[in-house]
Design a protein around this nucleic acid. Structure first.
Lengths: 324, 324
DNA sequence: TTGTAAGCGTTATCAT
DNA sequence: ATGATAACGCTTACAA
């Protein structure tokens, strides 16, 4: 009944006589003993840990990604750590250090960031710091970093999604199509705007800067912005919205102006959030496989999946009643 | 430059000369060194860990509770572990053991369970097992266990919420009020049904069992059930729904039957999920402070908050257009 | 102010 | 089949 023997019992080693085995198990049960996984982990043994870091945990998009990642991590008996930065780079940096101290298998960094090299450099620094403790960094729901091929990422086709939406609106006869919800210098709005521009370009239509509207990414910010946009004499006949939440704000604005959807103005959202199919009229939107993004992120993180640096999942235009 | 000195530097011990301190820091920075938090944790030092366990991570209810708990845990520099059981008691038990191995400060067990003593006994067993490793168990979004006062819980007033909803419908003149979405032997449906019964009782109305309808807790299950309920010659004039998701199913059923809401049938939901205020008509529902439930759960878990065994947060009836 | 030595709970190695 | 010992990376008396 030595420590070694006990250890062997819990590790299911074959070389331990059933009798002693039972004796150990009985004693353990008696004392309420469970192995100290921290001691195991300290030696690089035992379960692995996957961390998920996002700016916020609000809305179904991040929650779905996190849930997808969690399902993969937990399914294999690993641990899943969740933390938010509140959009604060300093907190993000601190968090990254803290996580490094826990020797995770991987850190998934989720969501939109500032565009440009500053973030990319930060990400490279994170990736290197994590690599120094044997951990991987995987960007999820974030476009690939073209500069640094070493940064793994799992993304979804935002550009293509909006591009198809614009194509759909053009096919429906629309020529004055606005984009609502721009947030400057952020990757997700930038990608979706790019899809809008490419969609117009495909149709040989010019990009009219007065139809690209900046507003907060919430229903009320969108409502206010839409109110002014839709009050213009030359108002657009169709609106592509950054998110479904923005689209909801547009619904409210249209209603208060007495405009019919899609008769007076067609609306397209993005994300396919729950319930938007039950709005009146049902919202046309772009469905994003957020759960799967999380799943693939975790799989890449744990080395369960082939990856060539970047995975991009398809999005799907869901045509409902709010567009022709 | 011994290990001890280095340790002192990272622990911000005062008794270390600035010169050596800098030397250590420089060396650390050079090597990309960070303390091994697992070694610290093994000795019961360093950050604490809060675990959150739910059956699923789908929908905004669990996600909001988890997010609230995460915000508290992370704010204090602790770690937040998230895991799901998939509603499988065996997985739940395994998970509890696994978590125990990691010596968390507390485990939050979230959501509805089977009613009755079986769960209560399980919870007591969990609580004891966790206590043996210095961890607390806190039930969140689950009614208090009357039998075992030792089990901490943070809940919200489901009974009162539905009771007020019924009162509101009665005040609006309704007499035939149905309850849709019963799932037998589960705490959350049981609580909400109890609120329905009490509401009727308050008004001196009998509980008509033929108006208490069982169905799956999703829009489509509800749609099918509502279709048959609303096709009855003596159909109810108002429906209290287990959740907003169920209410959405009822909306679809009413629409396909050509029934007006609230003209032909009034609807009340539960949860105040995002966007339900933007349905047509806007859904009357009961708002639940899920985020706050998570917050209080984590606070109780970490001993940051006075508790006398059970905390119950209020719910709020939000009257919108779907009810008189 | 700094260093030495012991101990935390494991597991791997090498006996026995 | 079992046990003793070293090692993992850290902290904390206790010395120096």
């Amino acid at each position: 009944m030595s420590l070694t023997t006990a250890s062997r019992v819990f590790a299911d080693h074959p070389s331990v006589r059933p009798a002693t085995r039972d004796r150990v198990l009985a004693a353990a049960d008696d004392l309420g003993y469970v192995v100290n996984a921290l001691a195991q982990a300290m030696m690089g043994l035992g379960r692995r840990t996957v961390a998920f870091v996002a700016a916020h945990m609000i809305g179904s998009t991040f929650a779905d990604m996190a849930a997808g990642a969690e399902s993969v991590a937990t399914a294999e008996g690993n641990l899943f750590l969740l933390s938010t930065t509140g959009e604060d780079p300093a907190r993000e940096r601190d968090l990254m250090e803290t996580l490094r101290e826990y020797r995770p298998a991987a850190v998934l960094l989720a969501g939109s960031t500032q565009t440009g090299e500053e973030f990319e450099q930060r990400a490279v620094a994170y990736a290197e710091a994590l690599a120094a403790v044997g951990a991987r960094l995987v960007l999820v729901g974030h476009p690939a970093c073209p500069g640094s091929k070493s940064i793994l990422s799992v993304d979804y086709d935002q550009v293509g999604g909006v591009r198809r939406a614009v194509e759909h609106l053009v096919t429906g006869g629309h020529r004055r199509i606005a984009f609502l919800g721009l947030i400057p210098e952020r990757t997700t709005p930038a990608e979706r705007l790019r899809g809008y521009e490419l969609g117009l370009q495909d149709a040989g239509l010019p990009v009219d800067p007065s139809l690209v509207i900046e507003c907060a990414n919430d229903s009320d910010g969108a409502r206010v912005a839409a109110l002014s946009l839709l009050s213009r004499p030359d108002r657009p006949t169709a609106l592509v919205c950054l998110t479904d939440g923005v689209a909801v704000g547009v619904y409210r604005a249209a209603r208060s102006l007495g405009l019919a959807i899609p008769g007076d103005v067609a609306i397209v959202g993005f994300d396919d959030a729950p319930i938007v199919a039950d709005l009146t009229p049902a919202l046309t939107t772009i469905r994003v496989p957020f759960w799967e993004v999380g799943v693939h992120g975790a799989r890449v993180a744990l080395g369960l999946e082939e990856y060539d640096g970047h995975v991009q999942l398809p999005t799907e235009l869901i045509v409902r009643e709010s567009s022709p």
